[in-house]
Design a protein around this nucleic acid. Structure first.
Lengths: 234, 234
DNA sequence: CCAAAAGTGTTATGCTTACACCCATGT
DNA sequence: ACATGGGTGTAAGCATAACACTTTTGG
């Protein structure tokens, strides 16, 4: 059991944490590093670090991530909850603001020795309160895939519907029909056909049309699905 | 122009802020207090204060609110964004975590001299970054009214559909049909008839049935409105 | 008897899932 | 030819908005 050294009385520190998600090998995976020292030696942790005096939380996450993942490869970054339980860190009082970061499936950033991608549905033991944070990040992603264009942050610049379907399937954790996915995204005018064709699997089959997302910034497409304002006629 | 006293070099402090909303006089209003001193002397500010060593953010907001609004009257409290721009406070480096608080329309807490309710669609000049925070809080409320039972936090224990319609109208900022509101909420099994009747306006008219919300805790009713898992047949 | 408000019945609409069927390519 | 995927057409389901009409009360 780890104990708090007397010299380190609780001093409030603000940290940032990133749940960096990417679809790799057809599964939604998270970037984690293995702690060498107590507390939680041997456990896996979300990347992050301490907030400095002259930066915003967003700048801080990107700075800390630059060590693990090339910043340019994080296609979407979004603030999640700020955790504040005084007991969440046994060593010192520490607030932590969590972020969701998404990396397109075609990126393969070099990561340090102690760092690895782990499937989110088969996690090792996580340090601190990092497991609920990571699961909350996945829920946020799953929710937003339905009413925004957030798929762009999981997908390469261009892709076929079969490839996109596989990304959505991995992220959502259930079967997705390429047919219906195409219709939903086209109707919402989020996808643009590039005009080119590409072959998907190894076997034969008709070559697939190649698409791209119209914009690579978050757009909400469905906000007022219900209890929407009355339609003004004349 | 206000200048930073030398003695107060930038020291990171963590504050909490609450956007406390209530429907009063048929309008969505926010609780604000008027600053007496610089910076932003004379401007209106969200209630809040500094986070102490041994409390969570949630405990801190409720503690600070206890001065302005009776805690028991805050029916729903929810964390919003944590703001971190180093320049957001000209005096000292200060992070602030914002909250959305909702007060039922039948509560009328006594508030201090410098504190008043202001319609959110007609705000006075606000201090710091409080205006964007307040508007974000309203957006969160508007969004969640559609896919959760959050109406309970705006409504008294019991109410008629006409009363509830007026609350939704004020919060959403557009006309709401009592007929359709009733059907939506009943279908989702959020409302329970109490069996009693009540008269609404002053004129004649049929007395209205009185309802209550089945639960007074947040429930998400609609999460997978779209891109939902395939239905499993057999 | 008439005005006012509540509540019910019914239709229209829009978006989505489900599924049958046709299309293009490799072996 | 036939297997393998891609793509289109179409029907069905479902929730909600819209609106006409009935019910119940006060004056």
């Amino acid at each position: 059991m780890y104990t708090v050294p007397d010299s380190q009385a609780k001093t409030a520190v603000h940290a940032v944490l990133a749940a960096v998600l990417q679809v790799r090998d057809g599964r939604l995976q998270a970037l984690l590093w293995q702690r060498g020292r107590d507390p939680y030696a041997g456990a896996w942790a979300l990347p992050g670090g301490v907030l400095e005096e002259d930066e915003t939380l967003e700048e801080s996450v990107l700075r800390h991530l630059a060590d693990k993942v090339d910043v340019r490869e994080v296609a979407h970054l979004e603030q999640l909850e700020t955790r504040s339980d005084p007991e969440r860190n046994p060593v010192r009082r520490e607030l932590a603001t969590a972020f969701l970061g998404l990396v397109p499936s075609d990126a393969d950033p070099a990561v340090p020795e102690d760092t690895r991608w782990h499937p989110v549905d088969d996690l090792p033991g996580l340090a601190y309160d990092h497991e609920p944070i990571l699961l909350a990040a996945r829920e946020r992603l799953r929710g937003k895939l339905g009413y925004t264009n957030l798929g762009f942050a999981l997908a390469p610049e261009t892709f076929t519907m079969a490839e996109l379907r596989d990304l959505y399937t991995a992220a959502l954790g259930h079967a997705v029909s390429a047919t219906n996915l195409q219709r939903v995204l086209l109707r919402r005018e989020l996808l643009q056909p590039t005009g080119t064709l590409r072959r998907y699997g190894r076997g034969g089959g008709r070559p697939a049309a190649v698409y791209r997302f119209g914009t690579r910034e978050l757009e909400i497409t469905d906000q007022f699905a219900v209890l929407r304002p009355p339609t003004i006629t004349r």
